[in-house]
Design a binder for these strands. Sequence first.
DNA 1: ATCGCGACTTGGAACGATCATATGCACAGG
DNA 2: CCTGTGCATATGATCGTTCCAAGTCGCGAT
Lengths: 342, 342
Amino acid sequence: MDATTRPTLESVAQRAGVSRQTVSNVLNAPHLVRADTTDRVRAAIDALGYRPSSAARQLRTGRSRVLGLRLEPVHDGINGAVLDRFLHALTESAQARGYRVMLFTAHDDAGEIAQYSELLDTADLDAFVLTSTHREDERAAWLAERDVPFVTFGRPWGARPEDAAAHPWVDVDGSAGTRAAVAHLRRLGHERIAYLGWPDGSDVGEDRAAGWAAAMVDAGHDGGLLRRLHARVPDGVAAGAQAIERVLADAAPTAVVCASDSLALGALTVARSQGTTLAVVGFDDTPVAAAVGLTSVAQPLSEAAQRALDLLLDQLDGTGGTRSREVLLAPHLVERASSRTP
Amino acid sequence: MDATTRPTLESVAQRAGVSRQTVSNVLNAPHLVRADTTDRVRAAIDALGYRPSSAARQLRTGRSRVLGLRLEPVHDGINGAVLDRFLHALTESAQARGYRVMLFTAHDDAGEIAQYSELLDTADLDAFVLTSTHREDERAAWLAERDVPFVTFGRPWGARPEDAAAHPWVDVDGSAGTRAAVAHLRRLGHERIAYLGWPDGSDVGEDRAAGWAAAMVDAGHDGGLLRRLHARVPDGVAAGAQAIERVLADAAPTAVVCASDSLALGALTVARSQGTTLAVVGFDDTPVAAAVGLTSVAQPLSEAAQRALDLLLDQLDGTGGTRSREVLLAPHLVERASSRTP
DNA sequence: ATCGCGACTTGGAACGATCATATGCACAGG
DNA sequence: CCTGTGCATATGATCGTTCCAAGTCGCGAT
C-alpha cells in the first residue's frame, strides 16, 4: 500500500491474483472474462482506487477521447450566448459519454485548419465540432480529406443539392422558426407583419427570411407589399431601431419578426418609446429576450449538442445510434409580453 | 518517406544522422547541443514535419500541458458573457504558451472536486483555473492539500486577513470600479447618486457597494441619505426596474450606479420610458451595454486571463515571471450615452 | 605519448496501457 | 487413450517520448 504511487494495471492484477491483460479485459471486453474473476478484479480496482492512465492508453491506441472545438471571439454577446449554451450542453453530453472537450482559438478558417493539424499531430484529438458553417467552407473539406471525424453545428450551405449530404451535421430549422412566429402573430390577429433581417450573403439569414416570406404568401400577401415589409440591415440594436422606424413609416405593420434578438431589441425599444403597440418577435431566445420580455424563437441547443455528439460517436465508436447523418431540429416559440394583440 | 506513418524522434534522428536523444535535446535542452548539429536536426524536423506526441511525452513526464476549467451553466447570459470573454482570453493566452484548456461541467462544488480527482488521475491535468470563488470555498483547500497548481479568478473571500494570501488569485477591483463611476457622475455635475446592488451575502456585491459608499462619503454625504439611496435587490432586469422606481420616488436621485448591467438595463428602461434624465452606469460592460448605449464599468478580462496564466506558469514552469501571487486589476469606465449631465 | 577533462552523443530502460499470440485447461469425439 | 476444440487467462512486444548512465571525441596538460 504505497500511497505515493498510483495504482496501475499491474498492481491491480497482482492484488486480484490475475494478469494485467485480464484486468484490461474486465474494463474493455468484459464478455471475455468469467463472472467470478470479474468480481475479484472489480474489488481490487475499487480497493486500490485504480483509474486508467489516458496517456498510456492514448499512446497505444491512438485515440484520446477528446473533441476539439474552436472558441470564437465574442463578437456580439447577445447572439454569442447561443454558442455558449451549445458549448455547455456539448461538454456535459460528452462528459457523460467519457469524452472531453478541448478548446482552441483561431483568427480565421486558415488558422483553424492549422490548429486541426497541430492538435491531430500532437494531441491525437479524436474529432472536431465545427460551428458557424458558411459557403465554401474549406474546413470541412480539409477534415474529410484526412478522414478525421467531425460534425458541424450548421448545415453545409451550398448551391448544389449534394452539398447537403457532404458530411454529418446538426442544425436548427430557422425557416420553421420564423414561420411559427408569423403563425403565432396571425393567431393574435396581426396581418401586416414586417420582417427585419440581415443583408444578402448570410445563408442563415436567407433561411430565416424565407420562412417569414413563405408564411406571408400563404396568408395571401403579394410580392409588392412583402418587399416593403422586409428590411435588410446589419445585425445590431441600433440598426434594428432605425430599420423599424423606416418600415413603420413606409408600410405600417402591426407586428415584426426579427432575425435576431439584437434587431428585435432595437425594434422593441422604438415601439416602447413611441408608445406604439407593435408586436415584436426575436430570434435565439437569448437571456436578454427573457430579461426584457421579448417573445423569441428558441433553438433547442441542448438537443442539438446531444445529437451532434451522437453523430460523432457513430463515427468513432458506432455507439451514437443515430439513423440519419443530417439532423434538422425544429425550434419553438417562447411567448412573452412583446407579442400582443394588435 | 512513408506518408502513412507519422515521423517520430527516431526517424528524425536517422535522417539527421544523430541519435534520438540528441533530437530530444534540440527541442528540450538546446544548450546541450552544438550549433551545427542543431541546424541539421532542425532541418530534418522541418523536412519530415515532425511533431512530438504529447501522449508519449505525458506518459513519460507526467505532465500534459493542459489546464482544466469548469464551464458553469449560463444562469444569466448578460453576466455570463463575462466568463465567456475570460475563457476566450484564457484559451488564447494558454495556446500561445503551449498549453490547452480542457472543459468540464459540474452541478456543485462537490461535483467539481470529483471532476478534479478524475481529471488528475486519468488525464494528468497540470493545473486548474477556478471561477466564482465564494466564502468557505472547499475547492481551493482540496487542491492545495494535494499540491495541485491552481489560480482563482476571484479573490479568496473570507473573514480572516490571512485568507487573502491563501493561494494565487487574480481579481478585478469592483470597489474601484464603482468609485470611478461615482467620480465620473460627479464630474458631470451629479450629486444625488443612487446605488442598485444585490442583497447581503454576495462578497462581490459588498465590494462594489463599498466603492460607491466610500465615494459618496468622500463627497460629503451622510449615512441617512445614503441608506435611502441604496437599494438591495436580486439581479435581473425586472428587479432593477422596480428598484429604481422605488428609489426615484423616495430619494430623487439624478443618477444611479448599478452592480450589474442587468440591473442597469432595468433602470435605463424605466428612465427612458418615464422620460426622466436619470443617468445610469452599469457594471461589466457586457455586449448588451454596448448595444443599448449604457455607460458601464469594464473589467480587463483579457489581462485578467493573461495574469492568471502567468500565475499558473510560475507554479508549473517558473516561466510566468510574476512578482506577486495576488493580482488585483483596476477596471475602467466605458462612457456612453446613458450618463449625461443632470 | 598518455592521461584527464569537458563537451557532446549514445543506447538501454522506463512510463502504463493494448495488441497479438501463446498457454493451460476442460470437455467431447474418434 | 489420444487428440481436437473452445474458452479463460498469461506473456511478450509495442506505442514515442524522456531519464539515466555510459560512451566517444578532441584537445591541452603532464
